[in-house]
Design a binder for these strands. Structure first.
Length: 470
RNA sequence: GGCGACGUGGCGAAGUGGGAACGCUGCGGUCUGCAAAACCGCCAUGAGCCGGUUCGACUCCGGCCGUCGCCUCCA
C-alpha cells in the first residue's frame, strides 16, 4: 500500500478577501504560517468558541500529514472590557480572572485531544510590540492621540472595507465621536479609567490596548508581517479582521495574510453567543458526548456552513462514531482469526477511499466529503471481514490505512484497543456461553442482562462473544 | 437600510449543465436460539417560488419569498 498522498495539486482554501478558493501558499521557508483568533478569557468557553479551535487544529493536522511544515498561532485575549466587567462581578482582580479563564480554556480545549497550537500568545506579553506598532501608525499619519486615547484614522487607509466588502460611506454610524475625527475611527489605545484595575504606561499616558491592535502585533511577532492563513469566526470579519488589516498593512506596508479563512457559526436557536445567553459550555458538551463525538460533529459539516447544535444531531453523530469503531472491532476479530488470501476488493476500496479523502480535504478542507470517504473504508472493511477474509498481512495493512485516515481527523482513538472488560464480566460471558451451549436460553439472556447492567455489551460472533463497553 | 451566506429526501449533509454522494432514521431480507453488530436491497420523477438563457438546469442569470450572520461586544 502506497504511503504517498494521492494528490498532485496544492491544497486550496476559500478566502473571504478574494471570495474565491485559492491555492494555499507557503512562506519562503516552505512553512504554512497560520494565525487564528482565539478567545477572550472572561468565562469558560462554549462550544461555539470551540469550532474554530477544532477546525483550524484539524486543518493543521491535515497539512502536517500532507507534508507541510505548519506554524499555528492562536492567541488568547487577556485584556478586554469584558474582563473588567466580569472581574468586578466576581469580585477578583481582572488579571487574576483572565489568567484563571485562560488556564481553563487550555484545559477545556486539551480535552478535545487535537494537540495545541505552536504558539498561544497573550496580550499582556506583547505590550511593547503593541505600543511600537501604535507609534508607527501615528508616525505614518494613520493614527492620532486624542484625550488620552489613540485612534486609527480609517479614511486614511485606502483599503478599508476590502475584507468585508463595505464602504465607509455605506456604514451605519451609531456611535457619536466626540473624541474621534471620524465616527468609525477605532481605538488603538484606551486611556486608563478609574474603575479599571490594570494599566500600562505608554507615550500617550497610562492605559491599555484596544481590541484589534493586539492581534496585529501578536501575529507579526509570531509569524512576521506577512503570512499565509488568517483564520477565525465569520463574525470577526468585521470589524475585527478589517481593523487588523488596516493596522498591520498600514504599519508594515505589506499584505497581512494571503488567505482569510472564516468558519461559520454554531446555532442554538440563533447564533450561539454569550451575550445572547444561549450557550452550551464546551466542558459540559465534552462531559455529555465525549471528545470523539464532539470532534466528529464539528467535522461532519463543512466549516463554512452554519452548524445547528442539538441533541438529535449529536445522537446521529454518536451512531456514526460507533459504526467507525465497529469497523475497528471487526478488524480486531479478523486479526484473531485471519484468512489465507488477498482480498482484492478491500485493497482497491481502501486506495479509492484514501484518494477521495485527501482530494476532499485539498478542496477547501471538505471534511464532510472526507467523512464519506471514511465510510467507504468502513464498509470495505466490514465486507472483507464478513466475506473473503484476508490474511494477516493484508488485515494489518488495512488497519494502518484506516487508522491513517482517522488520524488526520483526530479520531485515531476510535481504532485503539479497548480496555478489556473486568474479569467478573468476562466470567459472566463465559458462563453465558455455557448456558447457550446447553440451550438454556433463559439463563443466557439473564446473564446478558447482568452484563449490560454493568455497562458492557455482548455480541455473539463466529469468533465467540465480543464484550465491549456500551 | 447596507454588506454577506444560504435555502436539496423523515433528519443531517454533499457533488454536478445531461445518471441527486455519504451518514442517521424507516422498511424488506440474510445471519443469529434471541439480541446486537454486520451484510444485501428499497426509500427525493424532484431540489423554496416564478421567470429567463440552453438541445437540455437542482446546477448559469434575474426577480420574489424565507432563514441566518455582520453593520455594537461576539468564535
Amino acid at each position: 500500500m502506497s504511503t504517498a498522498i494521492p494528490t498532485t495539486d496544492a491544497p486550496r482554501l476559500y478566502s473571504t478577501l478574494s471570495r474565491t478558493v485559492e491555492p494555499l501558499s507557503t512562506s519562503p521557508d516552505g512553512t504554512v504560517r497560520m494565525y487564528v483568533c482565539g478567545p477572550t478569557v472572561y468565562g469558560p468557553i462554549h462550544v461555539g468558541n470551540a469550532r474554530p479551535f477544532v477546525v483550524f487544529s484539524v486543518l493543521r493536522r491535515y497539512l502536517t500529514r500532507r507534508g507541510f511544515a505548519v506554524r499555528h498561532v492562536c492567541n488568547v485575549t487577556d485584556i478586554n472590557d469584558k474582563i473588567y466587567v466580569a472581574a468586578t462581578r466576581e469580585g477578583v482582580r481582572s488579571d487574576v480572572l483572565a489568567e484563571r479563564y485562560r488556564a481553563e480554556y487550555v484545559a477545556d480545549t486539551d480535552r478535545l485531544g487535537l494537540g495545541r497550537p505552536d504558539v498561544e500568545p497573550t496580550v499582556t506579553e506583547h505590550l511593547p510590540e503593541i505600543i511600537a506598532m501604535i507609534a508607527r501608525l501615528i508616525d505614518v499619519g494613520l493614527a492620532y492621540p486624542s484625550a488620552g486615547d489613540v485612534y486609527f484614522r480609517v479614511d486614511r487607509f485606502p483599503g478599508y472595507g476590502k475584507l468585508s466588502g463595505r464602504r465607509l460611506d455605506e456604514m451605519l454610524v451609531t456611535e457619536p465621536g466626540e473624541t474621534k475625527e471620524h465616527p468609525l475611527d477605532f481605538a488603538l489605545w484606551k486611556g486608563h479609567k478609574p474603575d479599571e484595575d490594570t494599566s500600562w504606561d505608554s507615550p500617550w499616558g497610562p492605559g491599555r490596548p484596544g481590541w484589534h491592535i493586539e492581534c496585529s502585533a501578536m501575529a507579526a511577532a509570531a509569524l512576521g508581517p506577512s503570512f499565509d492563513v488568517h483564520g477565525g469566526g465569520i463574525d470577526l470579519a468585521f470589524p475585527h479582521h478589517e481593523n487588523e488589516i488596516a493596522q498591520s498593512e498600514g504599519a508594515n506596508g505589506v499584505p497581512m495574510a494571503r488567505i482569510w479563512a472564516h468558519n461559520e457559526m454554531l446555532e442554538l436557536g440563533g447564533k450561539m453567543s454569550k451575550s445572547e445567553g444561549n450557550i452550551v459550555l464546551l466542558r459540559d458538551a465534552l462531559d455529555r458526548w465525549g471528545r470523539d463525538v464532539l470532534v466528529a460533529f464539528f467535522l461532519r459539516t463543512h466549516y463554512r456552513s452554519k452548524l445547528p447544535f442539538g441533541d438529535a444531531a449529536l445522537e446521529d453523530t454518536a451512531r456514526q462514531v460507533d459504526s467507525i469503531r465497529n469497523a475497528a472491532r471487526a478488524l480486531d476479530r479478523a486479526e484473531s482469526a485471519p484468512g489465507e488470501g488477498f482480498n482484492r476488493e478491500l485493497a482497491e476500496s481502501l486506495v479509492v477511499a484514501r484518494q477521495d479523502f485527501f482530494q476532499a480535504l485539498d478542496d477547501d478542507f471538505h471534511t464532510p466529503r472526507a467523512f464519506a470517504a471514511l465510510f467507504e473504508a468502513v464498509h470495505a472493511i466490514n465486507r472483507a471481514v464478513e466475506g473473503e477474509r484476508p490474511d494477516i498481512d493484508q488485515l494489518r495493512a488495512a488497519r494502518a490505512a484506516f487508522v491513517g485516515l482517522l488520524d488526520v481527523l483526530g479520531l485515531a482513538g476510535l481504532a485503539d484497543p479497548e480496555p478489556g472488560a473486568p474479569a467478573e464480566i468476562l466470567a459472566l460471558a463465559t458462563e453465558r456461553e455455557g448456558a447457550r451451549a446447553a440451550r438454556e436460553f433463559a439463563l443466557a439472556d439473564e446473564l446478558r442482562d447482568r452484563i449490560e447492567a454493568a455497562g458492557y455489551q455482548v455480541r455473539d460472533t463466529p469468533e465467540g462473544p465480543q464484550v465491549t463497553p456500551k
